[in-house]
Each structure stands twice: as structure tokens, then as C-alpha cells.
Design a binder for these strands. Structure first.
Lengths: 233, 233
DNA sequence: AGAATAGTGTCTATCAGACACTATGCA
DNA sequence: TGCATAGTGTCTGATAGACACTATTCT
């Protein structure tokens, strides 16, 4: 057993999470105001260190670490929220204190479940920011890059998957999904054309007809729900 | 300065690299036969630990670490090879010795540059394996997952980018690029239709007409090269 | 001359986008 | 009744795939 390799210095390992939610008709992102240096008083993404056992063995999975932090922050039960790995950031200068490598995740929260977030011990303040605003203000560390990358990733996914339903409750209408697509892409979409694309997903089994109708505008609309098939990336 | 956070146990951080190359008309991947436990005598992807300074600060960037290992293995100069982050694997059980989180990368090597690889100190043996064969044999750790993910990622990219030119020398023909697409996708492509897609990329500036022609089959064919525009993802 | 590949043309089904139109339920 | 939204139909241009065909050059 060559133990030698493991005596090398190790970096600290963190997860950071871009938590997006639909609030007041906007895409918003959860940010924390940092209590401590570095970047004290700056806004930052929620994150934390990955738990590793005392001897540097075992501990929790990365996805589990991200989910744990996500649920601490949102006060939501684990397992119910869409969470996906985004990218790993490891520049030696990204944290002035010590070497910290961070695995970034992004999470999509259904509308209405966002208001449970509370100020924890780590932060001075918790706030939901319109995504566009957050993208145009300084953030701690390389968190701005994480936001930018998340948006691009989502924009790409919309072409071939109905991921955006993760922002919606169990039953939703075509117009509701279209609205989210518009927010993410930053442009208006033709309702008729979007409808056809949507119905393709229904035919393919990714989406299914829901129960009853919902009135968001003038005329009640059919609701839909997840289909039997998972879209997987 | 709250140093407290950094006294928590840290995981070891590694990079693993899927190095693909075109050899003998096949897609091949570079594997090493492991000298030490765990998985002694098993085939594994090349990889290594990310360098971190003595006090656990600074050190090398992740991409740099991957490139360093890549160049050690292939004996090629840095900076010339396509290298992209794939995914980060962090299951607590992935390495039985200690907690090791691994950032996986994949690299695409131009044909003909593959033969410099030598057996280093770490390995018993170095070998190029046909990708399909490697995907159907047991590999150390979770390296099989890394291979599978790399293939899927590449297959996805071919739809909208000429990444596959990274497998080719500076000047190449349409048929050469098509051959690689066929290898990656595992299906035959219509030469005429592929040509039209190719010429779209030329029009878009991602590719450009090269100098002279090359004869791979019967009739000499026009060569092409990289265009001025980068395709970025 | 024959063979294999380079390169072109064409037909069709599908799809995205633009836009007009009908249907329905609420105020 | 008016109006905003749900939902349908239609036209057009772009695109992907299948496939036939011509052109070129090597042997």
C-alpha cells in the first residue's frame, strides 16, 4: 500500500449552488451576504465544504453535499428538487485564504417554495435577486462566472427538453411554461409555435395531460404534468 | 479571519484524463495498467493528484494539472491539445484507500501523435485500446463511467460543431472528418449530406479552405483547415 | 478501361417561424 | 358585448435524409 501519495497537501473542497426560482414573474437567484472575510459584506452564492471523515476518508457524496446545503438554505425536504452539476472551478487564486476547489451545482425551485429561506449563522442577510440584476453586480469569488454558465446551460437545454417545468407546480399550463422559456431566453416566443413544440413533448411521453384546467388569463387552459418518460439531459 | 473552516478534513483531489486518438482507423483510448493497489493490474485512465502548496494553499489550476498529466503521458508539448472538463466524480467509495474526488477531463489527440507514450514509473504498462473494447471491459475505479460520458458528450457535440477536427492534422479532407464522425456515432453517414453540413461550417467561418489537395482514396480531394472563428462549446 | 472516390443535383418529409384566424370564458 | 387568451390552421423558407448522377484521377 503506497500511502505516500496521500501525504501530499490537499485542497479544501466546496460546493456552491446557483438556486433559481420564479418569483413575481421574474427569474430570481438566492444570494447570501457574507459575514466574514474574504469578500465580507459581498453577495455570494450559498455553498459550503464537503464533509469528509476525520481521517480524510469517506464522508458525503458531492451531490449529497450540494443537496444538504440546498435544503438547509431553502428549508425544503431533500429529494424533491432538481439539482445538477454545472462545472468545477479550481483556480488557485479563487479564494485568497487557502486553496479551495469548488464544484458548482444549479438547482431549480418550483414557484412559491422560495419564501422559506432564512438567514443562517453564516450570513448577514439572505436575498432573492432578479437574475439579470445579479449578473450585473459584483459577486464574491468567481460566482459571477457560475451564474453566467448556469444561464447558458439552461438556454441550451430548452431547445430539446422541458426542464423548465422544474420551476412550476405539479400541474401547469402551456402558457406558464412558455413564460419561463421567455424569461430564460430573454425573448418573446410565438404562442402557437411554442404550443406545437410542447405537444411534441407530450407525444414523446415527456409530458402528459394533467387534471382539469387552470385560469391564468381570460380563458381557462388545459393543465399538463410530467410524463412517464424522463428526458435525461 | 475564521481559520476554523479550514481545519476540517480535506479530500484528496485528482484529475483523470480520457485521452482519445485515431489509430489504425479506430478511435482508441490510452490506458495504464496499475502498478499498485487498489485495482493492481487493472487498466485505468491516466490521472494524478492536483498539486497544492505545502500549507494547503495555491498550487496549480485544475486544467493545468490535467494538461501536465496529459503531456507527461503523451510526451507532447503543452498548449497544443484539445482538453475539456467532463465531470467531477466524488462518491465517497470511489477509492477504497481514502477520500479522492476526481475531476475528469477528456483530450483529443491528432492522429499520428499517439506513439510517443511511454511507460512511466506509475504504471506497469501503457496501451492504446479501441474505444469499443475499452467500454466492454472492467476498468479501475469509476473510469468506465468516465469513458461512457466522454463518448456521449462527443456524440452530442458533433451535431453542432466540428470538434472532431481535433483528431486530424492541420490540413484535412471532408471524407477524413466524416470518417471520424462515423466512428464516434457508430453509424454510416451519407457523403453528400455530410458535405453540405461541412460546407455550412465553412460558410460560417469555423472552417476554411486549406492549401492543396490530398489523395486518400482514388481522386484527390480539397483540404480544409480551421477557420478564423472558434466554435466555443 | 475500370473502379473508387470527389463532388453535385434533386426530391421529399419535416420543422421553425411568421401570422391569420376561430373559440371560449370572464368582466 | 367586448376582450384577452386558448387553441387551430396555413404559408414559407430552411433543413435533413435518401438517393441518383456526373466528374476526376489512380491503377
Amino acid at each position: 500500500m503506497a500511502k505516500a501519495s496521500f501525504n501530499y497537501p490537499r485542497p479544501a473542497l466546496a460546493v456552491d449552488i446557483v438556486i433559481l426560482c420564479l418569483r413575481n414573474g421574474q427569474l430570481q437567484v438566492l444570494l447570501l451576504k457574507r459575514k466574514n472575510e474574504p469578500f465580507q459584506d459581498s453577495w455570494a452564492l450559498p455553498g459550503g465544504f464537503v464533509r469528509v471523515d476525520a481521517e480524510g476518508c469517506g464522508g458525503e457524496d458531492l451531490q449529497v453535499a450540494a443537496e444538504r446545503r440546498l435544503c438547509e438554505e431553502t428549508r425544503l425536504p431533500p429529494g424533491s428538487i432538481y439539482l445538477e452539476q454545472l462545472y468545477t472551478f479550481g483556480s488557485p487564486e479563487r479564494d485568497p485564504r487557502t486553496r479551495v476547489v469548488s464544484v458548482a451545482y444549479y438547482a431549480l425551485l418550483p414557484e412559491g417554495l422560495a419564501d422559506l429561506a432564512e438567514v443562517g449563522e453564516r450570513a448577514l442577510e439572505v436575498g432573492w435577486f432578479p437574475l439579470q440584476q445579479a449578473l450585473n453586480q459584483p459577486l464574491a469569488f468567481d460566482h459571477l462566472k457560475m451564474l453566467q454558465m448556469t444561464l447558458r446551460r439552461l438556454q441550451g437545454k430548452l431547445n430539446y427538453s422541458p426542464v423548465a417545468l422544474e420551476f412550476l407546480p405539479k400541474y401547469f399550463t402551456i402558457a406558464e411554461l412558455r413564460t419561463i422559456h421567455q424569461l430564460i431566453l430573454g425573448e418573446q416566443l410565438d404562442p402557437g409555435n411554442f404550443r406545437r413544440k410542447f405537444l411534441k413533448w407530450v407525444e414523446a411521453g415527456y409530458l402528459a395531460v394533467g387534471e382539469g384546467t387552470r385560469t391564468t388569463g381570460k380563458k381557462p387552459a388545459q393543465t399538463y404534468q410530467r410524463g412517464l418518460k424522463e428526458w435525461i439531459y
